[in-house]
Simulated scan of single mutants.
Amino acid sequence: MANNGGRWHAYVVLLPGSVSLWPEYDWYRDAPVPTLTERAQVLAALGYEIAPGAEWEWTEASDVYDDPSSPVRLIATVTVQAMPEVTA
């Protein structure tokens, strides 16, 4: 999940594979940060859930490396797993 120009963008990285095939979702707002519940709901809608014992980790990344005046992007990561398929 990343904050990218006024919106929060969630995506599931699938390796190996093309970025164009990654499941994704956008919250078209800059604030507030999507809640844990909102993130879990989006992951479920994409067919994933947070892996047991995994926790969200936050990182800052600058648009321009080594420039303290550069805008900062917030990036959050968590390990996920595909949700089990329900069979009737």
Rank of each mutant, 00 (worst) to 15 (best):
M1A: 15
M1K: 11
A2S: 15
N3M: 13
N4L: 14
G5D: 09
G5Q: 09
G5H: 14
G5T: 05
G6M: 04
G6H: 06
G6I: 02
R7A: 14
H9L: 15
A10W: 05
A10H: 10
Y11I: 00
Y11T: 10
V12W: 02
V12F: 01
V13F: 01
V13H: 09
V13K: 09
L14F: 01
L14G: 02
L15F: 06
L15D: 11
P16K: 01
P16F: 01
S18G: 01
V19P: 00
V19R: 07
S20T: 03
S20L: 02
S20Q: 02
L21R: 04
L21P: 00
L21Y: 01
L21E: 04
W22P: 00
E24I: 00
E24L: 03
E24A: 06
E24H: 06
D26G: 01
D26R: 04
D26A: 03
D26V: 01
D26N: 11
W27D: 09
Y28R: 13
Y28A: 09
R29A: 08
R29P: 02
D30P: 05
D30W: 07
A31G: 13
V33T: 13
P34I: 02
P34N: 11
T35L: 02
L36C: 11
T37N: 11
E38T: 03
E38S: 03
R39P: 02
A40P: 06
A40H: 12
Q41E: 15
L43N: 07
L43D: 02
A44H: 15
A45E: 14
L46G: 05
Y48K: 03
E49M: 09
I50C: 11
I50L: 07
A51M: 12
G53L: 09
A54T: 02
E55K: 13
E55H: 12
W56D: 08
W56Q: 12
W58A: 15
W58Y: 13
T59H: 12
T59R: 12
T59Q: 13
E60Y: 08
A61R: 08
S62P: 04
S62D: 09
S62M: 11
V64A: 08
V64R: 10
Y65W: 09
Y65S: 10
D66T: 01
D66K: 06
D67E: 06
P68Y: 03
S69C: 07
S70P: 03
S70M: 04
P71W: 04
P71N: 07
P71H: 06
P71T: 01
V72G: 10
V72R: 11
L74A: 10
L74S: 13
L74G: 02
L74W: 14
A76I: 01
T77K: 05
T77G: 02
T77M: 05
T77E: 10
V78H: 07
V78E: 08
V78L: 08
T79F: 10
T79S: 14
T79G: 11
V80F: 05
Q81T: 07
P84E: 15
E85M: 15
E85F: 14
V86I: 14
T87P: 05
A88R: 15
A88P: 12
